[in-house]
Write a protein that binds this DNA or RNA. Sequence first.
RNA 1: GCCGACGUAGCUCAGCCGGUAGAGCAGCCGCCUCGUAAGCGGCAGGUCGUGGGUUCGAGUCCCACCGUCGGCUCCA
Length: 587
Amino acid sequence: MAEYDTEVSDDPLFILRHSAAHLLAAAVTELYPGTRYAGGPPVENGFYYDFDLPRPVGEDDLPAIEARMAEIVRRGDPFEQVLLPHAEARRRFQELDQPYKLYWLEQKASDDELVSCYRTGSFFDLCRGPHVASAAEIRAFKLMRVAGAYWLGDERNRQLTRIYGTAWFTREELDDYLHALAEAEKRDHKRLGRELKIFALDERTGLGNVIWLPNGATIRRELERWIVDEELARGYQHVVTPAVARLDLYRQSGHWERYRESMYPPMRTERGEELELRPMNCPHHILVYQQEIRSYRDLPLRIAEIGTNYRWEKSGELMGMIRVRSFALNDAHIFCTPEQLHEEIVGVIELARYFMETLGVTEYRYRLSVRDPERMGKYVGSDEEWANAEAALVGALEALGVEYELGRGEAAFYGPKIDFQVRDAQRREFTNSTVQVDFQMPERFGLEYVAGDGSRRRPVMVHRGAFGAMERMIAYLIELYAGAFPTWLSPVQVVVVPITDANLPYAHTVTERLRGHRVRVELDDRPERMGRKVAEARDRRVPYVLVVGAREAEAGTVSVRDRAGEQTTERLEDFCARLLAEIARRR
RNA sequence: GCCGACGUAGCUCAGCCGGUAGAGCAGCCGCCUCGUAAGCGGCAGGUCGUGGGUUCGAGUCCCACCGUCGGCUCCA
């Protein structure tokens, strides 16, 4: 993202944060003479500024920078706009030895207009503004962290030092924000995944390869059963294909050419055969397609698989279960005629929406991901095919009447796509579900079907992950539910707590009764106090605790305690019926 | 991969200016039989991420590497 491109906004909070970025730059240039400053926009919750510094700066330096910022606030330095002729502005930034600003000046300002600059104390910046009138208005801010960021967002360029901060109108808002950050940390799937024994990461499996513990495996199995059932009901055919293939398969698909840096190094056998862990499932599903002559009557052919993909993500890109090196994608490839394309895309979007609605996912955005016009070498296929593919996707979005944003440079190498964007507990955005239109692979593999007139035609392919990757989606769900999964997904749905050992026989009866209905139930028969057992079940986010003592055994009831702490006493049969109904309704 | 921060028991964390490691929880053993948010006692558990270096002496200081977290790049 080019900072200078940030939309000019009249939002007072954006103006405040943009001004806070200047305040930061003013403090940094005062403290470290010789600093070259590149750019600093407001962002969600705060701001940053990128610097090329004369010496390394780390987080230890932030307090001193913050103190200098506070000093400038106390001085009340005004934010003054200065309009200069282009040549004059160029001369100023040359004098100041600010090459990054000269770059922007040449990029963004034409020769014949006045250039807008801002002065804050001794700090002079190329900037359209608007800004607050005076530094005195910036009262509630905090520097958060230091990071590296490539000039112009290109890793081939020099890496600058980016300092992030947050800024608010009032001290209270700042405190609320910091508190919210701490709360978000408690929902972190990496933390909850360990506490709730859902998954483990152990470098001995190679980085970014998830160990699914029994609880996580249960959640995943429930989801997978549901997903497969729903897809079978919608005319998908599930297959199972190998996680490896000869490298030639990926040469033909174009992966080896355009996707190599994300692939594991090939394995070579003693015969010289090159085997590759699959980074995607599409070539494998093409092999399924090619096992027989396909007729137009077979189309649309929907080949599905929850297939594990292996991708060589850079080590710094790994992130818990959200970004891993092997993941199981709820994948499918739909082979269809161009005439069927629209309906198929709509069907996929509706399926993805159904999945999310059932799971209670309400906050997501649609992104139409297209090519980056400045990096066209990353893609395969003709402009015309891309235009057709994009038109098909837009047509489906419009038919469904949904709003969407444009993701420039977010397309797959073989085609454009619609991505369903969600946010984690820390508000970071990523893709779960996706629908992609592809004219390339059918071409590369020479796919055909026999049309009604006997001619051979080329099908179109739709790649889709209607649910997304199991790892990422479950990481997302852990954070969405803060670990308290709906009952149908809860690893343990009921814990039975006898009050004393004398109640054990009845507790066993209750447990067996539920287990007979395939309820995931545990009997807590440890020699502990019931208060502790209740507390531990609460910590494990178990949906129901059934306390059974002499009264319950006598009456054939159970004392039911839910996660909200609500207690009722019900006949065992009644509780069982309502529990099964809840599970059946996927709640 | 790059920038920054951080790695002490299974987990969460103490450990001062260098003087050869400590707590709570979890685990194991025993006692307590108890009505809805944590009963009591005991035991065991650590090559202080790894490898070098400085020092009479390193968990503490220095260097390299590995890993984790945040950001960049990339991405399901």
